[in-house]
Design a protein around this nucleic acid. Structure first.
Lengths: 253, 253
DNA sequence: GCGCTTATGTGTGCTAGCGCACCGAGCCGC
DNA sequence: GCGGCTCGGTGCGCTAGCACACATAAGCGC
């Protein structure tokens, strides 16, 4: 987090043609996203679209009772605020920073202006939206049918995919509120994963030791979403992107 | 189902301007949708977009184990096949007819052609997609936090909103597979609702007697989705639409 | 109207996850 | 280095929903 991130660390921004980038990038604003910051509150008007570079943001629905569930995880593969493209001004969800980092943001007016051109940004957004629908739907299925153990694995994998290291800074309490389960349930699941050597952890920090084990223990939901997303948005995987940030291929539109 | 339905019974088609209707309607094809017909199978290429007039279609995700969950209900307020607009050719979901009736369908090529014009259809589709995301997300939350009783109420209400009568032709077994729960669970919930006088039923047919009771017994999920949808797609409610089908107002775009 | 199929009702365990209560240990600030 | 706060670990009783096993009953075909 000490190095100033580049816009192109966000896969969607990177996938735009130089022409579109030329129009948009001057209006980008780099914002630090501290842990637990709230980008959008349920029902409030959105003023920007956010493109995370190295942060992770979760969308949660909060119930009247205070219970909540995360339905979506967004990192440098995507963006927050598709509602602005869609024609709404707000959603019934809350966006919460799940892993601190940076994001570039674009004012609502600029987004709409570029969108009106019906060019690359539109096409990219639509594809991204499709991927996002798949992730939300799979979350619904997962909530219905799978154990906390499996869902914790899925959650860790989703987070790992959006980071360049294997180290998560979050408490079990926080994960519990994201999964919409009790903290004790997460503790039990984490203990099992630790015994199996898949992770290690302590006081608000989790390290993934054996990714393959997590994948094996996770339900199919993770894999289904990943496959579908890769199909819709055939970017380079993140590691290659970072190594060779100068030659990011443009998504075939 | 004996009367040939009009395209304008579908709210989205009705909301289009006469100009767009003039381009699209000649290519519409009326298709009967018998109970339990499958419009799209998971992973298969979609060939048409469907606009239900008096039928109800559910989108389900099916797991490897065979368990399934419906994530979305579509009736005359919407359409099936947004994926075709989005840029995909298939989804990991299955579309199953939940209440028999008719739908108009449009071949993929025509849809894409009209979409390329970036006019009314695009704007309408985006708004509809936003409403649909809300419904899916709320389903995820509901699956996590609410009882079968509450979910059955939600399900009945969702179905009722898409019909012009108070009578559903479906078995408890079928509802169970939609909600992703056991048949016995649905039986228990249905018994309670019957005792309370909210519904009556017998062998594959359910009648809603007291809608207000269902709303009171349902979780907030139903209401949240309804409010959000009305906000995004301010149509006339269906009953008025049928009474006065000649003067359906055009959605403000 | 007989028999088969299909839909619903019921009972008996069993388990996952919940709510609550409490402990110990790490960590921070002063 | 002391006190207090936060995080994680654990135990206990409870309930919803599950799996399985049957019983009854309504409709359908012939």
């Amino acid at each position: 987090m000490s190095v100033r991130p580049e816009p192109s660390q966000n896969h969607l921004l990177a996938a735009l043609s130089p022409e579109v980038q030329g129009r948009l990038f001057p209006h980008l604003e780099l914002v630090p996203l501290p842990l637990r910051a709230v980008l959008y509150e349920s029902g409030r008007a959105m003023r920007h679209v956010y493109f995370p570079t190295d942060s992770i943001v979760s969308l949660q629905y909060v119930m009247e009772s205070g219970e909540s569930t995360a339905i979506l995880v967004v990192g440098n593969e995507g963006l927050l605020g598709i509602t602005l493209f869609m024609g709404g001004e707000s959603t019934p969800s809350r966006s919460l920073v799940q892993s601190a980092g940076y994001a570039y943001r674009l004012p609502r007016a600029r987004v709409k202006e570029e969108f009106q051109r019906h060019g690359q940004l539109l096409v990219l957004m639509l594809r991204y939206t499709q991927a996002l629908i798949t992730q939300i739907a799979q979350t619904a299925v997962c909530n219905r049918h799978h154990s906390i153990d499996q869902q914790l694995c899925r959650w860790l994998l989703l987070s790992m995919d959006r980071l360049s290291h294997n180290h998560l800074t979050m408490t079990q309490e926080f994960i519990a509120s994201m999964l919409g389960v009790r903290r004790e349930g997460v503790t039990q699941a984490a203990l099992k994963l630790r015994e199996l050597g898949a992770i290690s952890y302590g006081r608000g920090s989790i390290r993934v030791l054996d990714r393959a084990k997590l994948e094996a223990l996770s339900c199919e939901c993770y894999e289904v979403v990943k496959k579908e997303t890769d199909l819709l948005l055939p970017y380079l995987p993140q590691r290659q992107l970072i190594k060779d940030a100068g030659s990011i291929p443009v998504v075939k539109l």
